[in-house]
Amino acid sequence: MEYENDYSYIRDNYSRLILNSARSPKSAIAISKETKISLGTVYRRLEILKKYGFLKISGKIENGNKVMIYHNKPKRYHVQNPRISYILDIIDKNPGLSFRDLQRFSGYPMGTLSNSLSNLEKDSKIIVKRSKRRSNYFPRNISPSEFPTLINLRKETSRRIILFLVENQKGTFSEIRNFANKSPSTVSLTLTNLIENNIIRRVSGLRPYFELQNIQLIHNALMRSEPNTIDKMKDRFADTFSYL
């Protein structure tokens, strides 16, 4: 079962009460009675908490029926920890950010942040996309197909090119270079990278031009990383997004 914005559910009061109740092994019915939360809500939160590794699950036989028992894992890296909650919130609001950006946003020392991120990755609370030069961090509810776009939206030249093509739908090398205000070599390398990541494509002809590969994917990535930007773009370029 999939839920949108899982971490918003994990951080809510229902999940905190359920995790606190499950410090000793209990069935869903027992948790519902203790927390005064409806059984349906308890089951929905248990599914999410189980998905992200917060609970140990076991079974026992009661009156001839198998009953699932839930136990809150005794780990330090739960979202109730203010530091962990803060780091997860930063990643959730800034998907694809690098370690350096995360350190700048959080203000945590390198060692503290590195250790927390390592344990969050081991506990399957975040996804880390590694390359030769850097690591980029994502919440668990984002599809890997969005990773390249989100990463490139965090790079100045790539972002300017993507936004130019969203606004204009297509552009020649000269038009893109003038808008990006970068050297020809920088723009050329960036365009090559965007093509290799299947974000844009080059259309051949008498006057070759570049366009976005998948406007829906760009729209989704912008909604996650820059909702204010996409709102402005919807107002100004309604035709571009009319089919989304």
Rank of each mutant, 00 (worst) to 15 (best):
V79P: 00
M110D: 09
R160W: 10
M223W: 08
E167D: 12
L244V: 15
K182I: 01
N63P: 02
Y52A: 09
T41S: 04
K182G: 08
K170E: 01
L153Y: 14
R133Y: 08
R236K: 11
L206G: 07
V128P: 02
Y108I: 07
R134K: 13
I18D: 08
P95L: 11
V187G: 05
Y9Q: 09
I142H: 10
E167Q: 14
L212Y: 00
P109N: 15
E196A: 15
N181I: 01
R104H: 13
L150D: 04
K75T: 15
S145K: 15
N141W: 14
S106D: 08
Y70P: 02
I57C: 00
Q169Y: 06
G53D: 05
T172M: 04
K56G: 03
E167W: 02
S32N: 06
N178I: 02
T190C: 09
K125E: 03
E167I: 04
I31D: 02
T35E: 08
R133F: 05
Q103D: 10
N178M: 04
A22V: 02
T35S: 07
S135G: 08
D101T: 09
T35A: 04
Y52C: 11
S143Y: 09
K73D: 04
E167N: 10
S58H: 05
Q80D: 12
E146G: 13
T149Q: 10
S85C: 14
I176A: 06
